[in-house]
Design a protein around this nucleic acid. Structure first.
Lengths: 108, 108
DNA sequence: TTGACGGCCATCGTTTAGCGAGGCACATTG
DNA sequence: CAATGTGCCTCGCTAAACGATGGCCGTCAA
């Protein structure tokens, strides 16, 4: 998968995932990897900065949770503003796809 | 339209357009602007470098053509290698869309 | 005749996302 | 004890698109 194509889709992906419930970083990476059958492996260097940025803009929030074995995990959850932003992003995504499709032509 | 989303889609767009026949830079910009109803204005700073790169990799070729009024235009046309590349790019594009769609959910 | 406008090419510096590599810490397993 | 896996993170680099800018030339109105 071309890296350049992915650019800009990360926030949409993250917001969409968190819409299903709170998740922590490592879990997000694994989930994406598994759901795409290994096609797409979200990189840590892309994930964490994106997550922090989303948190800084108040679209998501985070909290630490201690597991039974004593280890910590940082969970992220969607905030109402993030929910709204996701809706807008989805719309934008659909427009974008339609736009490109108009030039590329319908799917084979 | 979010600029980040566009990243990486430019070569696909250009190749798709040139697949319909030779075009020159300014014409490409106008065509995109008109077909998208003004939603997307391809910028010169994105177009020309992209075109030159595509030419450097032998996916397209260019030739100057003189108009009746004596002015010159640089036309770009798709080469066989570019045709093949376009096919591959289209496939990749479809995979990408499917991937994102899988997380975002089906279209409203 | 001069000046504004539009067609047409192009480059340059900046921004920004993602990448790859690296680092740190702790748990489990062999 | 060592290796592997879980889990967080940052940093320097690459590369695409942006915005600004510049130049050239034709046309048409003032």
């Amino acid at each position: 998968m071309d890296r350049e194509l992915l650019k800009g889709s990360t926030p949409l992906l993250l917001l969409s995932l968190l819409c299903e419930g709170p998740m922590y970083g490592y879990q997000i990476i694994e989930t994406v990897r598994q759901r795409t059958g290994g096609t797409y492996t979200l990189k840590e260097g892309a994930l964490y900065p994106a997550l922090h940025k989303l948190e800084a803009t108040e679209f998501i929030s985070s909290y630490w949770e201690t597991q039974e074995n004593g280890r910590e995990r940082r969970y992220y959850s969607l905030l109402p503003a993030g929910q709204a932003f996701l809706t807008a992003k989805k719309k934008e995504w659909n427009q974008f796809v339609d736009m490109v499709q108009a030039f590329v032509g319908p799917r084979a």
